[in-house]
Nucleic acid binder design. Sequence first.
RNA 1: GGAGAGAUGGCUGAGUGGUUUAAGGCACACGCCUGGAAAGCGUGCGUAUGUAAAAAGUACCGAGGGUUCGAAUCCCUCUCUCUCCGCCA
Length: 443
Amino acid sequence: MAGFYNAAMLDIRIVREDPDKVRARLASRGAGAEADIDEVLRLDEARRKGLAEVEQLKSLRNRVSKDIGVLMGQKKLADAEALKTQTRQVGDRIAQLDKEVAEAESQRDDLLLRIPNMPHESVAIGRCAEDNPVVRVHGAPEIFSFKPKGHVELCESLKLVDFARGAKLSGSGFLLYTNWGARLERALIQFLLDLHTLEHGYTEVSPPFIVQRECMTGVGQFPKFLDQAYAVQEGTDGSTLGRLFLVPTAEAPVANIHREEILKASQLPIRYCAYSPCFRAEAGAAGVGTRGMIRVHQFDKVELIKIVDPAQGHAELERLVLDAEQALQRLGLHYRVIQLCTGDMGFASAKTYDIEVWAPGQGGYLEVSSCSNCEDYQSRRMQLRYRTESGENRFPHILNGSGTALARLFVALIETHQQADGSVLIPPPLRPYLRTDRISIES
RNA sequence: GGAGAGAUGGCUGAGUGGUUUAAGGCACACGCCUGGAAAGCGUGCGUAUGUAAAAAGUACCGAGGGUUCGAAUCCCUCUCUCUCCGCCA
């Protein structure tokens, strides 16, 4: 088994062949991720040296064992015994070397799993969110003839969300949608799924909302962000704790659908679209922060996943962003697309665009979508490959994007379309789903 | 939760300690044959590591450990699948 799972995100061969380039590109992220490269190289060297030696010994042992079999067939038992005694030491040495090799390999891979992806060359260099370039802006902030209310006030007056009882049920950061609020949430989910499946060509899937550890590792959530997840256990059986996790995004199950498979080139591109609730413990950043619906422990999201030929990866990312933007355009919302700079990108991503929607009540933009091309970082971790026409096995690019996150979309929608009389006008594409064109206090 | 049966390469399916470190079939690729195709015949065809590239070598028969000179094969633990029973939306 040793050696089969090169459970790393960075291609160890690239690290081996051009460590300076790898270090430089990781350094552009800021977080000091490049520091572990030397140690990775050292462990890799030790592993390969041990492997070369142990394989020679195994070859010897295999030959001798075969001879023993032949001798025994010829009833030359004394000769066979002599060879056995002689080979016993070889076996011991092999066992010892095997252990050393496995040890070096697992240490190497533990380190590699904690090193983030390398940013794509086209990504802007920067340190933090202030350095993110704005790519494009759609529309303009709504002009109101009155002072627009915030979503918390709207939700309370229209009885869309019962914040107090949500907290009573599950603690702060959990929402109880009520009546028109619940219906609006459901309408948005269905609108988004229909848009992406019927018009953008994605295949809808409905995945489990609890996944195994391997899924989380596959997409790069683990091991580094273990403390952000909700771990579950079965009843009072503590030994089951940490085997299953509530999904932080549908990306976790959906991107892993083809884990450890070898796809045919003709199957690509694969485009999946899935609704799921998203659970985020956000340990550390926890608690306080924003009142209302902007930062919560559970929210709904429609996620888009693509598995594509590496040559198409970055073109597909551009299209993915447009697909997500389309949702906001149909709902009549003002938004901007920004590119995350090297220092602000997520762990697994090589290139990321965020879409931020304007929320008049907040007087600011809310992140409702993050679209990334993780290149082969995730496919490598999950051993997902495809076979080219020429019979070669390669790692495809895996992309993910929110299409879009709901709680914040909900906020932007009601704040943008609120009327002077306190009602909210429903944009036309949503009306068939909601079966009303307006949510008002009386309705 | 109880009882039983299983897990082998893209699929199917042999193989209960050593000339099998995976037979045969299907599918696939190339060639022969053909006016063209099918059939037939021949060759090739798992994954990974290794190599400048190749070849050799090595590892992999659900996972992990053990016995042995040698394990797909024997022993132990675990996971998953299927059938039946119980419970349950």
